[in-house]
Nucleic acid binder design. Structure first.
Lengths: 225, 225
DNA sequence: AAAAATATGACAGTTTCGTGACAAACTTAG
DNA sequence: CTAAGTTTGTCACGAAACTGTCATATTTTT
């Protein structure tokens, strides 16, 4: 299984630290967000494997974040971690769309078991998102977003971006792109067509720094370093 | 609503009865098995929607039953119900392949929430209603309403809307829609027929913003966010 | 400074979708 | 069974968006 990327929304830094350390030991990649607002912002840029949410946050209820997540990503796994262990709380937590609900104080091994069980359940789902440098492609919806929200791409632009993001980190040659995106074999396609489509992409995506020109070779998508 | 069929493996008849009654009130169909052997026999004859297993059974450990189930049906939802609430027990329960683990004494509402969450996740819930962006389809009554009340759709229009709402959030291609809604094999169906039917749908539904055109690909139903 | 590669702006042919109209097929009521 | 009303597929047309190309500018390399 690829790296499990976890977003953990928690304001209590002691707990957050403990959980983060434990999960990192298990090989997960954990990012902690101390407010709902920040978590929301991060989610717009990149979609993790799973989200852990503390119910009581300083800037709102975790349930609302979960509902918001469900509105955008129907299948993104969400687990609540909370001290509120009353039946009514649990039921309302599930009603906001969560997949599991763990009451503090919890055993870390149990938490990890539950994460694994959930990922086992969702694991075989074909990967639905491609993300790189703040740009997210939702392959099911066939939409693209950047930090400022959804971006409307034409068919060719979408195909081009898709090809580049599939090869994130690799430099792909102009010829190869032309072959793959315009799949012409004998058909002459003006080489400049690629240049122009790249420009149109960059314009629509707000000149993203992750789409790099590799002079005399081609282009490369890569996270800004 | 399609019936949720539950196999409940439990030797304590008092608890079994209570749980069974509660779940039946919720519209589920519950069969109780008092031994692992009988449950196994029943599973070989018929596979339910979900299995609830008590860990301590007179003729063996529930974990073994779960492992056996996983060997045959990788995706059949399984929940453990048990008094053994020690961390090690829980972890080993999950390791045998369970999807959830509920410690007795449990609240019935919580149990039901967990069952629902799991079925939601596995896509086993057949809902009576489909709703999206203010449009509600009642699949039993075969009716459609929007904010202004019931809308009268023709057969094809209904099928088209049904297909789109089933795939809420996904962009579906024109070809796929034509295949699915007009199920012609070699039969020529004019591509424009789809365009026209979409228009008729939009007219009747008051130009809903949730029915989006994805140029040169197809259409997508989606809540306006 | 010249040459090469890439970026940019403008333009026009093409594609795609929405729209109104129409006739054949089907349904329903009398 | 007939006649009126509905449904459904098709066509033709137009507006809007898409896409490839050219001419020109800008940047990078030698």
């Amino acid at each position: 299984m690829a790296v499990v990327e976890i977003y953990y929304v928690e304001d209590d830094l002691d707990i957050a630290d403990m959980v983060k350390k434990y999960l990192e030991e298990k090989g997960c990649q954990v990012t902690v967000y101390r407010t709902i607002a920040r978590a929301r912002q991060a989610l717009q840029a990149c979609v993790p494997t799973i989200v852990l949410i503390d119910l009581n946050m300083p800037d709102g209820q975790g349930e609302n974040l979960c509902r918001w997540i469900r509105g955008k990503w129907k299948a993104l796994p969400v687990i609540f971690l909370t001290v509120r262990g009353d039946s009514r709380d649990i039921v309302s937590g599930f009603q906001s769309g969560a997949d599991d609900y763990v009451v503090k104080p919890f055993d870390l091994d149990v938490l990890y078991s539950r994460i694994q069980a959930l990922l086992r359940r969702t694991g075989n789902v074909t990967k639905q998102y491609l993300s790189c440098g703040g740009i997210v492609m939702d392959l099911d919806r066939r939409t693209v977003s950047d930090h400022s929200g959804e971006v409307d791409l034409s068919a060719v632009e979408y195909e081009l971006l898709y090809y580049l993001m599939q090869n994130e980190g690799k430099t792909v040659t102009r010829e190869r792109i032309l072959e793959q995106v315009w799949d012409v074999h004998g058909n002459y396609v003006n080489d400049n067509t690629l240049t122009v489509t790249i420009k149109r992409l960059r314009d629509k995506l707000g000149q993203p720094s992750c789409l790099k020109t590799v002079r005399s070779i081609g282009y490369r998508m890569e996270d800004t370093v």
